[in-house]
Design a protein around this nucleic acid. Structure first.
Length: 199
DNA sequence: ATGTCGATTTGCT
DNA sequence: GCAAATCGACATA
């Protein structure tokens, strides 16, 4: 058994730092089909107070963004383009609207389940590189909005892997040109050399 | 009540 | 390389 990431881990007030620490952590989902696990290879940080790219900017509370204002360690999931489920991890404490988008994972366990969900072989990088494909590979859908990541359906594990900064690719986030000057912030993190990351 | 558009992926040219 | 797919949240009326 590996230790599950706890509430204090998610409450880190520095969402950019936490986005880096999430690389090498393992996302686990336990649904009807069985257990699936993937190692996080790509993340993006969003900071609701100051970040124009964040759905909760500037402290905008709506039905959809409400969970981002809650305590750290819950799932923020939304539908993009009507078909892609985006899996985010809410961080920081209540009323601080920070979240981290999971953009890439390396499949670890439940390979057959993941392959059947994605309808492709696990040796193709497209199976889980990109936020929409990550959620599909793990079986995460918008009906899991608000799931407590300390429960037993979706959770994260620390298996002792961590990366130093020189092992990472750090750059601006993807698809947020509308965020003006914030579009340039280097808040996207990838594990250098890993197969399951975006371009 | 209605119109717009997105933190994307895929397949066809 | 480009455009279609397809839903709901949000803003406007």
């Amino acid at each position: 058994m590996y230790p599950k990431l706890n509430r204090e881990f998610y409450r880190n007030p520095n969402v950019v730092e936490l986005a880096q620490h999430l690389l090498g952590k393992f996302v686990c989902t336990q649904f009807e089909e069985g257990l699936t696990v993937g190692m996080i290879t790509e993340t993006e940080a969003y900071c609701g107070a100051t970040d124009k790219a964040c759905h909760a900017y500037p402290n905008k509370r709506t039905k959809r963004t409400e969970i981002i204002f809650g305590d750290g360690g819950f799932a923020y999931i939304y539908l993009c383009y009507g078909l892609h489920h985006m899996f985010n991890i809410v961080t920081n404490v209540t009323d601080a609207a920070d979240a981290i988008l999971i953009r890439g994972i390396a499949p670890v366990k439940g390979i057959e389940i993941i392959e059947s969900r994605r309808n492709m072989s696990v040796n193709r990088k497209q199976i889980s590189s990109g936020p929409g494909t990550v959620a599909q590979a793990l079986g995460i859908r918008t009906n899991h909005y608000g799931t407590d990541l300390l429960g037993d359906t979706i959770w994260l594990e620390d298996r002792g892997i961590q990366f130093t900064k020189d092992q990472l690719l750090i750059g601006p986030r993807v698809g947020i040109d509308y965020a003006e000057e914030d579009a340039l912030l280097p808040w996207r993190f990838r594990v250098k050399g890993n197969k399951y990351i975006g371009k």
